[in-house]
Structure formats: structure tokens, C-alpha cells
């Protein structure tokens, strides 16, 4: 029997909407698990990514932890895919990019009305440091394929994955390629 394709997925600065869209292939999930094994993914809660054929990255890069995870996926995945608007161009989180990070943190945690007295910007050493700007993943690592959409439709993800697994260059036609 042909060995299965190994896929890892993760969500960086994303909303898990792209993962929901993947689940949205519905009954075709049963066909997909005949073709692939899942490595690290929110679907199975494996904590460290191992050697994989394909890495699907949802979300842009907004903090130091995102960079570490993204580089780890790049190292372990033969093919790395930017899935969804945030991974492709920063998406909604990147709409903070024209604002100063300190101004945002101060407004959210210190000066906006209704906060408890003594509220401060969180500073726990376990919290990853936010970056000044949110970046699409291709600004950090080399990316092999892009699947735009917010989220990409389930049919687009299905078409992309089945093309890739079959060894074809993935092509998204009218209706499957969209940025919204």
C-alpha cells in the first residue's frame, strides 16, 4: 500500500475559521483520512510537529511564539501552505499595523472606560511578546503555496489538497479563488 501523506496544521494569529472550513468538507473527511495522516494539528492536539509532507498554516504572525512555531513548521514540512487571508496578507489582525503598539496596549488595558482600578498591561513572562506589526507568513519563511479566502471555501481546500496529494499543481478556478 502507498504510504499516506503526512499533514500538520496550525493556527497562528488566526481565528480557527480556516480549520472550521477544513472540517466543512463534511463526509469527504472520511475520504481524506484514507489519503493522509495528521501530525501536529488542533484536530488531534499533538504538541510538537514531526517530519511532514505538508504543513497548512492558518493566521499571520503577530508575536514571538508565532515566529518560533512557523519556523518549526518550515523546518519539518516539505511543502508549506499559507491558508486563508491572515496567512496570505495579515488579514484582520494586520489592520492594527498603522497604529502604535504601545498606544493600543495602553488603550485596551489602561485607559479605556470600565476597567478595574489598577489595571495594567499584562506582563507575565509566559506571554509571548507581541510584534510591532502583524506579518503575512511569507515575510518570515519561504512559502510554497497560497490558498486565499476568509476563510477559503471547503471546496477550495478539498480541491487544493486532492490536487496536491495526486501530484498535480493545485489550481483554483472561478468561485474557488476569492480573497473574502
Amino acid at each position: 500500500m502507498k504510504s499516506k501523506v503526512k499533514i500538520a496544521t496550525t493556527s497562528l494569529a488566526g481565528c480557527f475559521g480556516c480549520h472550521m472550513s477544513l472540517l466543512d468538507i463534511d463526509l469527504r473527511l472520511l475520504d481524506l483520512v484514507q489519503l493522509v495522516d495528521f501530525d501536529r494539528s488542533p484536530i488531534n492536539d499533538i504538541k510538537r510537529v514531526g517530519a511532514c509532507d505538508v504543513g497548512l498554516i492558518e493566521g499571520g504572525v503577530c508575536n514571538a511564539e508565532n515566529i518560533e512555531i512557523l519556523r518549526d513548521y518550515r523546518k519539518h514540512c516539505k511543502i508549506l501552505v499559507a491558508v486563508g487571508a491572515c496567512a496570505v496578507n495579515g488579514g484582520l489582525p494586520a489592520q492594527r499595523n498603522h497604529l502604535d503598539l504601545r498606544d493600543i496596549l495602553e488603550e485596551v488595558y489602561q485607559t479605556s472606560p470600565g476597567l478595574a482600578p489598577g489595571s495594567a498591561i499584562p506582563n507575565d513572562p509566559e506571554l509571548p511578546l507581541p510584534l510591532n506589526k502583524v506579518h503575512p507568513i511569507h515575510e518570515i519563511v519561504r512559502v510554497d503555496y497560497f490558498v486565499p479566502g476568509c476563510p477559503p471555501p471547503a471546496d477550495a481546500l478539498w480541491k487544493f489538497l486532492t490536487d496536491l496529494i495526486a501530484g498535480r499543481t493545485p489550481v483554483l478556478g472561478h468561485g474557488l479563488l476569492h480573497y473574502d
Binding site: N89, G91, L92, H174, L177, D180
Partner: peptide, 24 residues
């Protein structure tokens, strides 16, 4: 940012990018 733009779906820049298969 197409997902939050009212013109999305009616935008010539976006439609031309689809036509020319701009993936990134």
C-alpha cells in the same frame, strides 16, 4: 483587506487579480 471591504465582489482590482490568478 477584502474580507472587511464593502466593495468586495464588485471590485475591479480584486476581479482582475482573480483573472490573473494572483495567489499571494
Amino acid at each position: 483587506f477584502c474580507p472587511s471591504c464593502e466593495k468586495s465582489g464588485d471590485c475591479k482590482l480584486q476581479a482582475t487579480a482573480y483573472e490573473l490568478k494572483m495567489m499571494s
